[in-house]
Each structure stands twice: as structure tokens, then as C-alpha cells.
């Protein structure tokens, strides 16, 4: 028999998991890039990798405290955004797509190569950087919670921390997007030449957007590594595509969309994986192995991306009024 309670409780855990928070933050950054400014950043995985490695290397190699490690990660992502933006933000939109995807791969290859093994741990990655953060934990040791949401002090600490960052980032994004700055940014998405003709320095605004959204991705990358190790294989191009799926699900030009999109994405994915694994185990799908059942969810994500773009381009939270005008 299938243990439905287990499947549902695993899925429910994803609602507040640090991974969900990390993806929500990265998706919010992408919303600033793609949803609001119209920048095709396909290198969000690279920004996340910089957060993860920036934090871990600062802590492990240089022994920096937590706040300094966070700043190093953010600093690295700002430099990365400048390197990406300077050559491409003057060019057509698709050039940024190609350059960002290439740059993220360059980062991943550099983090993977044996050449810098001493610092990056090459393919097996890094761990043991969580001490500083755990030491800051105000929650006394013990196990807290109810039902599926029962965690130890560290697990609660990283969840609280992660979601606090998400909420702050969302409030910040909300406040800048309703300001004149947000108006210029949205204008650039619609037609950058028109905005230029009105006397706005479009290049500078695009750069600000790239840096800001990238920094969100970097923070997401830091939250992402709190419950696990830093492994370069996690920062493949498909990571960026998953974040796009979340963004499209929630609505690209919305604040709540990326956050709720991330929750829905992970709950559904966990539910589906759990169900398929148990169903195959129970012999419901005799033609399928466990491994194949595990791959089905990626096929599903791919199909979901296609269907969303074609049939509901504004996402769940997008403005219905917009739909009739989306090209």
C-alpha cells in the first residue's frame, strides 16, 4: 500500500524548506531582471554559485566571520554582474542571454576543475562552513514543532533566517517597483529606445537591475547551502531553467509570484516524486523502474514551462488585464 501520509508530509515540508526559500529569492532576482526590466539573464545559477562559494571559501580558506563572508559573496556577484553587463547591456537582448549562460558555465567549470582543488574542493565541493552561522543561533538546542514541521534548533534557525531574507527582499522589491525607479525599469522592458529618448540613462538602469537581481540570486545561493554541502554539479544550466519555471509559474512581473511559485513548485515536485516512487514500488507502473520514475518529474517541469509560456504567460499572480496585450 502507498503511505500517503508520508508523501503528503514530505511535500508539506517543502513549503518552508530553506531550498524553497533559496529558489524563491533567486526567482525574485530573476523577476527583477526578466519580469520587470526585460533582461534575459540565463546565468542565475552562476550568481547562486558565487553566493555559495563566496561564503564557503571566505569562511574556510580565509576564516572570515559570517557577515564578512556574506559581503564577499555579494561583492563577487556585483563584480560578476559588471563583467557580464558592460559588454552586453548595449547589445540586443539575446546577446545577454548567451553571455550569461556562458559565464555561469565558466564559473561552474572553474569551481569544478582540479586546478583549484585546494580552494574549491573541485568536483566534491566544500563543507564545514556552517559553524559560524550555527554559533549565532539564538534557539536553544532541542527539537521543536508539530506534525511534519518538526526540526532541531539549527534547522529552524536556517528556515527562519532564510525566510526572513526572502520577506525583506520582497518588501524591498515591492517598494522600489512602485517608485519612479520602478517606472523607468518597467519602461525599459517595454521599449528601451523610448525611455532613452525621454532622457533616462537606460544602460545605467539595466546595470542596476542586473546587479540587484544578481545579488538576490547570490543571497539565495547562500541560503541554498545552509542545509547541504557546496557541490559544483548543483550549479548547472538547468538550475537557471528551474528558476525560470518557478518565475513563469508565479508570474514574472510580480512580487508574490516568485515566492508562491517556488512553494508550489517544490511541494508539487516533492509530491510527484514521492508518489511516483511509492507507486512504482507498489507495482502500479510495472513498465517503469525507480530511476525512470525519478526522471519523469524533469520531463514534467519541461512540459510545464512550455504550457505556461504559451497558455498563461502572466503566471498565477500576473495581471489578467496584461494577458490580452502580451505579444
Amino acid at each position: 500500500m502507498i503511505d500517503w501520509i508520508q508523501i503528503f508530509s514530505n511535500a508539506a515540508q517543502e513549503l518552508i524548506s530553506p531550498t524553497t526559500a533559496a529558489y524563491a529569492l533567486a526567482a525574485l532576482g530573476l523577476a527583477i531582471h526578466f519580469g520587470y526590466t526585460g533582461l534575459l539573464n540565463f546565468g542565475q545559477a552562476g550568481f547562486m554559485a558565487l553566493g555559495a562559494y563566496g561564503f564557503a571559501i571566505s569562511t574556510l580558506t580565509f576564516g572570515f566571520p559570517v557577515w564578512a563572508s556574506v559581503l564577499v559573496g555579494i561583492g563577487a556577484s556585483i563584480v560578476f554582474a559588471l563583467i557580464l553587463g558592460i559588454p552586453t547591456l548595449r547589445l540586443r537582448a539575446d546577446y545577454l542571454a548567451i553571455v550569461t549562460i556562458a559565464a555561469a558555465e565558466i564559473l561552474r567549470l572553474i569551481f569544478t576543475t582540479n586546478t583549484f582543488d585546494d580552494v574549491t574542493g573541485s568536483a566534491s565541493g566544500l563543507q564545514g562552513y556552517k559553524g559560524g552561522l550555527a554559533a549565532l543561533n539564538p534557539i536553544p538546542p532541542g527539537t521543536y514543532g508539530f506534525g511534519p514541521f518538526t526540526y532541531n534548533a539549527y534547522d529552524w534557525w536556517i528556515r527562519i533566517l532564510g525566510w526572513t531574507v526572502v520577506i525583506l527582499a520582497a518588501l524591498f522589491t515591492w517598494s522600489i517597483m512602485r517608485s519612479p525607479w520602478g517606472r523607468v525599469i518597467k519602461g525599459i522592458r517595454e521599449d528601451e529606445d523610448a525611455v532613452r529618448a525621454l532622457g533616462k540613462n537606460v544602460y545605467s538602469y539595466k546595470m542596476q537591475s542586473l546587479i540587484l537581481g544578481g545579488a538576490f540570486g547570490t543571497l539565495g545561493g547562500m541560503i541554498f547551502i545552509m542545509p547541504r554541502a557546496v557541490v559544483p554539479a548543483n550549479y548547472q544550466t538547468s538550475l537557471t531553467f528551474f528558476i525560470y519555471a518557478i518565475l513563469l509559474l508565479g508570474g514574472a512581473a510580480t512580487i508574490l509570484g516568485p515566492i508562491v511559485g517556488s512553494m508550489i513548485f517544490w511541494v508539487l515536485l516533492s509530491f510527484f516524486s514521492g508518489f511516483m516512487a511509492r507507486a512504482v514500488e507498489a507495482g502500479w507502473f510495472p513498465f517503469m523502474t525507480q530511476v525512470q520514475a525519478g526522471q519523469l518529474r524533469f520531463i514534467l517541469v519541461g512540459i510545464a514551462i512550455m504550457l505556461l509560456v504559451v497558455f498563461r504567460p502572466q503566471g498565477i499572480f500576473g495581471n489578467k488585464k496584461e494577458l490580452s496585450f502580451v505579444r
Partner: peptide, 16 residues
């Protein structure tokens, strides 16, 4: 014409 389609008419104006 480069009206900014997904901005309101008023936002278009304010941008100027």
C-alpha cells in the same frame, strides 16, 4: 510609435 504598452497612460506620461 513607442508607447510603453504595459504601463498605464498616466505612467507613460510621468516617465517623461
Amino acid at each position: 510609435t513607442k508607447a510603453l504598452g504595459l504601463l498605464t497612460v498616466l505612467d507613460n506620461m510621468k516617465l517623461g
